[in-house]
Nucleic acid binder design. Sequence first.
DNA 1: CCTAAAATATACCGATTGGTATTTTAAATA
DNA 2: TATTTAAAATACCAATCGGTATATTTTAGG
Lengths: 213, 213
Amino acid sequence: MINNYTDRYIFVLLNHLVMTKAEKTRQFIVEQTAPIFNTKGYAGTSLNDITEATGLTKGSVYGNFANKDEVALAAFDYNAEKMATAINKAMAEQATMAGKLLVYADLYRALLTNTLHQGGCPLLNTATEADDTHPELRKRVLGAILNWKKHLSALVIKGVESAEFNQKVNPEQVALTMIAMIEGAIMVSRLTENESHWDLIMDSLKKNIKQLS
Amino acid sequence: MINNYTDRYIFVLLNHLVMTKAEKTRQFIVEQTAPIFNTKGYAGTSLNDITEATGLTKGSVYGNFANKDEVALAAFDYNAEKMATAINKAMAEQATMAGKLLVYADLYRALLTNTLHQGGCPLLNTATEADDTHPELRKRVLGAILNWKKHLSALVIKGVESAEFNQKVNPEQVALTMIAMIEGAIMVSRLTENESHWDLIMDSLKKNIKQLS
DNA sequence: CCTAAAATATACCGATTGGTATTTTAAATA
DNA sequence: TATTTAAAATACCAATCGGTATATTTTAGG
């Protein structure tokens, strides 16, 4: 049997599971500002941008975040996780390791047309801005990149173990080369606003992956 | 014979060829601020940064530049030209087309250790910051990248014509892939502060270039 | 429905931003 | 050497920056 105390406890718990008011606005702020931070960068995004995008006041923002830094960090995390989710979903549909690797090439194309993220790849943007200026932010991107590298390496290793790939393949090298080609392709094709540039580079990447067999 | 009028004219001309005072300080400002713009970005560099780096006052800076934009544009041009000069010099020492292509791979390594530029590759930094925010700056990077692409393509075409490379090679694709790999490698290895990452990606690039034959 | 607490808005703060008008200093010409 | 011109420094400007203290509103619990 459930007594009054437990009743109340459960209610509060459920209420918080469904999200408290503050948590809702916190998430709302993150969702609304994440694309702005990704396009204008950390230094280029002002508190005015944040209040404008959310329709909230400075007081409300600072009631949920200690400072601009915290908003930026949360926004980056949101962007990075959004990408990871999309990747994992698309990857689950692929059977072969080569197929899984190519998911990145296909999915990152959405970064060019702003369907996945406004402003391009958050890893590229944040890395180039923060590497020499913002240690905390840099730390997060570093974690995301190393994670990505680990993930790719693991796929290559699996492919080698299952004899899908050649034994001589260096998993770390394949992972790093893929990351470099993808990020470099994003930079070039977003700058030139030419999707065929993306396609040509990804064609090279696909050839490289085929050569792993 | 030279009359007085011509005398004075020549003197003024020579004086200006040797550089007027204003041109000297203009160049001084550009040289001193170029690395700052490259590390902190356009939005992250303030006029205070500029006066601090040069030891000059705001009045002096604005006597030589109309606004912050002009300093940033001149600084970018300076950085880009500095790179182009280094490339051309190193390339002249190479005989084969493959050798000339690999000059990029070797020379850009200096971007990691800050011996060539503080803050990494100005093309990568400026492209990722300005592509959605600063049309003028974006235009300049775009020009530099397209020029680079053209330069690389021309080398590949020459290699094909001289039978050094395979006839089936797509020059534009090779050029774009090289640019992407180099810029992506800079992003990754600067972020991770791991030069072996650079070496592994460049090893992949070298393999790709060897396969052109 | 009333009260306590949480969340948001208002009003303000000093510091810094990019930029300018004016004065002072340095350089060049007559 | 005196005078004109160019360059640089000083002093100032409104606007915006990130941030905070306080007042008001909204939400939840008894």
